[in-house]
């Protein structure tokens, strides 16, 4: 995909510079740098404990970085003076455990933030939410409560909840890892659609086949560093480092 795209036309969305995160003695992230462009579908793979989640969660400062810099849409969001809440509205996040609000109906889950944070009217927010619900095939569940939904439905709703804020990038942390195998497909389908619509996505996953299918770039996270980074095809067909080779041998 990116092969025929000229680098100059690409718009820089997130620029990560020498990012690190230390939990006391533990260096979960150790000098990660990467530029993320609009429309990028970046998959992050690597062994468990290598810092994938920490990297993703530092991008919207859910985890406070201990070093380095992140520019999001040209603004240094690691600067303590930046109002991170404002920028988070533009960075949707999807969690492994869905984290829907159990005390609210699906519709309220979807419209709470647009109404409270973006000043939308209830009618407007509900109309937009309904359109998105229809697209993921869950319009009939608008009045349901989260615990009436299957895991796959919950995760699709969680994706829609993030989309309702009209984000410029979507961050996914193992979105299918908590799902029964038969429900993985329906969530991947929604992500596939998003990628087709040119949503910028950063996805931490173990679904290597899926990464091969929709990623344009793949990062191999290894002991808190980017061990290798490449176009999706090169990454899988032509791994350079021994560590990536042995990782791929294990997961493929």
């Amino acid at each position: 995909m990116s092969d025929n795209m000229n680098k100059d036309e690409k718009q820089l969305l997130i620029s990560v510079d020498n990012l690190s995160k230390h939990f006391e003695d533990l260096h979960a992230l150790n000098g990660v740098s990467i530029d993320i462009y609009k429309g990028d579908v970046i998959f992050v793979v690597g062994p468990s404990g290598s810092g994938k989640s920490t990297f993703l969660r530092c991008l919207n400062r859910l985890e406070e970085p201990t070093g380095g810099k992140i520019l999001f849409e040209g603004i240094d969001i690691t600067d303590k003076k930046t109002d991170i809440n404002k920028h988070r509205q533009k960075m949707g996040m999807v969690f492994q455990q869905f984290n829907l609000f159990p005390h609210m109906s699906v519709m309220k889950n979807l419209t709470l933030a647009p109404i409270k944070l973006q000043g939308k009217s209830k009618a407007e927010a509900e109309e937009e939410a309904m359109k998105l619900l229809e697209r993921v095939g869950l319009a009939d569940r608008a009045d349901a409560y989260p615990n009436q939904l299957s895991g796959g439905q919950k995760q699709r709703i969680a994706i829609v909840r993030a989309l309702c804020m009209k984000p410029d990038v979507m961050l996914f942390d193992e979105p299918t890892s908590a799902l029964d195998p038969e429900m993985v497909g329906e969530v991947l389908e929604v992500m596939r659609e998003l990628a087709k619509e040119n949503m910028t996505m950063v996805v931490v996953t173990h679904e290597i086949a899926f990464a091969k299918e929709i990623a344009n770039r793949v990062i191999f996270m290894d002991e808190g560093k980017i061990g290798e980074e490449n176009d999706a095809k090169e990454f899988f067909d032509n791994p350079k480092s021994e560590r990536l080779k042995s990782f791929l041998a294990k997961v493929l």
Binding site: N85, Q97, N99, F101, L112, K116, M165
Partner: peptide
Amino acid sequence: GQMEAGRSLGFNYIQTMWHI
């Protein structure tokens, strides 16, 4: 995870407490 979900949508700490 509830606090994280609220914060990731852009709610500040107090708003997340209050609404979620």
